[in-house]
Nucleic acid binder design. Structure first.
Lengths: 343, 343
DNA sequence: CTGTTAGCGCCTTCAC
DNA sequence: GTGAAGGCGCTAACAG
């Protein structure tokens, strides 16, 4: 007798079962359970007990048939690592308090065919709306205008300006970072970033330059682009410290790069943060909180992004005009020991 | 005109649309598409073309009664980080080739209430089965015997032996690791692990001891337990190298710990792998491929686990007895520079 | 107060 | 080959 033997498995209990056990009609049972006030207290009690006894839980889809809304959104992603999509998912679920929203995540792995396949599956399952998440902030192809439910693009914006997209404000984020460094007394600031083909790399570089200019400073050397790895962080830092030994802060394009930079700094005997401040980007906890010292970083507020996306989906369902185009949401500075000495 | 304005959005295409386009009744269209034999071949052809043209996909929910498999499984997880669940999801989707299976992932965040909520949502959407994924290998509460579809527990096994659970063979994994170390000439092997409350920590410790004994060796010192962090890895390695300077290999309970161990080894001037071999566990790429040197690790074959789970779900649907209890699946050794010098 | 009736949106199965 | 009926599980109107 295994749980995986379908023949043995009971059907889910329906309102009809409850009504029968309580000796009332389905309508009465429905009213009793939904707190309508046209039911005798004794009857209500009986129904509730029956429901409890049968462990009844209403079929949300049947409710959705009537309400025209199921409280479920589909989350289409291509973020294999899940670094971005999972916080976004969590945020979306919490958009209206616990247990109000269901999110179904499907992974398309960057494949248009798979995306269509999942899209169909989600739509036929009556999701109220869709959230589409990509793993970089470069525009991605729109799902098109023919989706029968509201769609919000998150992190990776849609390439169609008629769509609504929510993405972190990377330019502003870099500004935050530089202001933090300058505010804590740094003046010789360099920027080691990742793959220049990423919009995120470009936006952060622009923001860095702008904020430096605003503070009357100039970047030490050029922005160093290559890839988003620790390895590059190590190499770049070695190069940088050789050519510009007087650098007193390194803003990195990702936490991984920052980890590499920390390694090299240590190898070369530079103390962090005393001699050099090091900052990461993305606030990926497994990297930031485990390094020596812990990494100051920029958090993209992904949960907030997810929450906002879900709220927009349901607002659109309510007929509210939620706007369109790319909306840039604020990021958050997380200060740790790599920029400010403890105590 | 935004994509999120519901009034502008076309309805999904239904059988009615197909029938209209093909110039037949819905009934005929239904028969034609379902391969019933009371339809003229020409008509059937026309209907099929119409369906294609409209990209029609039948709504799996509207088939009130019959068993028609929907090719969809629900994935219930509590793995916030997604390190385990995402490869498992990928594997499940690939169980029968691309585009055959849809997986809907729901995150319960370790909360029983949320889990019930998602469970209902998934079941009402007519998923064919469920895969339940936890983030540790300790047993988790069963969903109970009253689920109307096959359920397979992955990574975290169910506490009910009547359920089917698939989990990595941690004991065997540790054996693999020790055999690799011994096979490459190490004899003074220590084991730094994580939180001893985790079954994974205990299982790996047992496997390590067994394999050492089988090789006629003994562990250097005791197994060192604390937590799964780089920080602990650094501290533990310092302690270990002080008390047992002659150690020539350190098997770590996780990649994070191993990263910390690598740091300390470098600080103390021990060369890896020449003086000391270091091994991680879990093969978390962001950690293993970015370290200096890259980390040899044990891969739990999570994709294979996911694929197997999905296959079991559908086999059970076909009435095959897929067994029950905990099944331990083999792991895989991934050799990198931290145990064997390159070239 | 409670039961009856009528759908929600879609598909399948009857009769004709 | 067709139209009409039936059903999924639930709730909202109305009757009684």
């Amino acid at each position: 007798m295994t749980r995986t033997e379908p023949a043995r498995n009971p059907k889910p209990v329906t309102l009809t079962d409850v009504a029968r056990l309580a000796g009332v009609s389905v309508a009465t049972a429905s009213k009793a359970l939904n707190g309508r006030d046209q039911v005798a207290p004794a009857t209500r009690q009986r129904v509730i007990e029956a429901a409890d006894r049968l462990a009844f839980s209403p079929n949300p889809l049947a409710r959705g048939l009537i309400a025209g809304r199921t409280g479920t959104v589909g989350l289409l992603t291509s973020d294999l690592v899940g670094r971005f999509v999972l916080p976004i998912l969590t945020g979306a679920e919490d958009a209206f308090g616990a247990g109000q929203v269901n999110v179904f995540l499907c992974d398309a792995r960057g494949d248009a065919i798979r995306e269509q396949h999942h899209l169909r599956a989600l739509l036929s399952r009556r999701v109220d709306g869709l959230i589409v998440v990509g793993e970089r902030t470069d525009p991605r192809p729109s799902l098109g205008p023919d989706i029968p439910v509201p769609v919000v693009y998150v992190y990776a914006p849609s390439d169609d300006p008629a769509d609504l997209s929510l993405t972190p404000d990377n330019t502003g984020a870099a500004r935050l970072a530089v202001e933090h460094l300058v505010g804590s007394g740094r003046t010789r600031i360099a920027h080691i970033s990742g793959d220049p083909a990423y919009a995120a790399a470009q936006d952060r570089a622009v923001g860095t330059r702008e904020a430096l200019a605003a503070a009357g400073l100039e970047l030490v050397g050029d922005v160093m682009f290559s890839d988003w790895t620790e390895h590059w962080g190590r190499d770049a830092a070695a190069l940088l410290l050789e050519h510009h030994p007087d650098v007193d802060a390194i803003l990195c394009g990702s936490d991984q790069i920052a980890r590499g930079v920390l390694d090299t700094a240590r190898d070369l005997g530079r103390r962090v943060p005393e001699d050099i401040a090091v900052m990461g980007f993305d606030n990926w906890e497994v990297l930031t909180t485990n390094s020596r010292p812990q990494l100051t970083s920029i958090d993209a507020n992904l949960q907030h992004l997810g929450r906002t996306a879900a709220q927009r989906v349901f607002a659109a369902l309510d007929g509210v005009d939620v706007g369109h185009g790319i909306q840039y949401l604020p990021t958050r500075l997380v200060i740790r020991g790599s920029t400010i000495a403890r105590r």
